[in-house]
């Protein structure tokens, strides 16, 4: 069964525009001028139960708007949405019992109170009885390694600790679908990785459907099986991550710094993007040569002082998708 079904979904925002100057202010007061912004433009897709889907795109692509329509907060301008067989707009309350949401940049926890208080409150809101709630809290505490964080006021938690509590808070009522909107934004690599692992475990152990938006290609590669890429409100790609990885996420960026000047003769599959006497930025095509091989080669050059491996930014990936598409159509 489909967990999420979306057909020809569009959302148009109407925002007021005002020109500069006092005169324009008065004019706007009498006769406001509106500008229409097409945030989501005729998208269709389905998500199966138990699937982990990445919904990715650069900032302002329409990811959050889509999540807000799927959860019933925003009313679609046109198109059809069905989540767990329910209409998010008309059956929002019914649906809310069965979905959980995490917005990485916002908090659902009470800022001055320890998370446990917010958990108790959420338990009551979702009609979870006391015994079940305590069991759930104990499970999640172990899984998310919350421990004494539960008793610490939220304002004293680090971002990574807070996000762990946020995700746990969204799982107290055992939702069938978990919507994660940029859950790893602003986190360091280690915490990012642990959040990703938690999401994977939730999916494996409970069969929770995961709908994840991100502009971090790392999130997508490491947890999702399928990815939808959205740009300017339109779906530009919908395919398994495996293929996406092969076609587009096939590059890694390696930045290296040497202790003494080096002259690099790069092997095949490696492109020298930028270099000085003692540092270089390499783009590695992982289809041709492995990261392992490139690292060995670099070490063999001698005098490596520092080395970092990064994913290419989302913007580059999208640019290359467009490039390849144009290439095909010509």
């Amino acid at each position: 069964m489909n967990a999420i079904y979306v057909e020809n979904l569009s959302k148009v925002y109407r925002t007021r525009i005002k020109e500069e100057g006092l005169q324009a202010s008065f004019k706007a007061l009498v006769k406001p001028v509106y500008k229409e912004v097409q945030a989501v433009n005729d998208i269709s897709f389905t998500v199966e139960q138990g699937e982990i889907l990445a919904f990715i795109g650069p900032n302002g692509a329409g990811k959050s708007t889509t999540i807000k329509m799927l959860t019933g907060i925003l009313h679609p301008t046109s198109g059809r949405v069905s989540v767990l067989g329910l209409d998010p707009v008309r059956q929002r309350r019914e649906l809310s019992y069965r979905i959980g949401t995490v917005f990485g940049q916002k908090s659902q926890l009470w800022f001055h109170l320890p998370p446990i208080d917010s958990f108790v409150l959420l338990g009551a809101i979702y009609d979870v009885d006391k015994k079940t709630l305590n069991k759930r809290i104990a499970e999640l505490t172990e899984l998310f390694e919350l421990g004494e964080l539960l008793q610490t006021p939220v304002r004293k938690l680090s971002l990574g600790q807070r996000i762990r509590c946020e995700v746990a808070a969204s799982l107290l009522h055992e939702p069938d679908i978990l919507f994660l909107d940029e859950p790893t934004i602003g986190l360091d690599v280690v915490i990012k990785q642990s959040i990703r692992q938690l999401i994977l475990r939730m999916n494996r152990e409970r069969g929770t459907t995961i709908f994840l938006t991100s502009h971090d290609t790392g999130d997508v590669e490491r947890i999702c099986k399928r990815a939808i890429i959205i740009d300017q409100g339109r779906i530009i790609l919908d395919q398994p991550v495996k293929r996406l990885k092969y076609d587009y996420l096939n590059r890694k960026i390696i930045a290296v710094r040497f202790e003494f000047p080096q002259h690099l003769e790069v092997p095949e599959g490696v492109k020298l993007e930028k270099s000085t006497d003692i540092s270089a930025r390499l783009s590695v095509d992982t289809r041709i040569c492995s990261i392992d091989g490139v690292m060995r080669w670099l070490i063999a050059q001698g005098g490596v002082a520092d080395i970092t491996v990064e994913d290419p930014p989302m913007e580059e990936v999208i640019a290359s998708i467009f490039q390849q598409k144009e290439g095909k159509s010509q």
Binding site: G72, Y97, F103, S107
Partner: peptide, 13 residues
């Protein structure tokens, strides 16, 4: 304005 309203609206109350 901050969008936190999204948390408050999709709750069963």
């Amino acid at each position: 304005k901050s969008g936190s309203i999204a948390y408050q609206l999709n709750r069963p109350y």
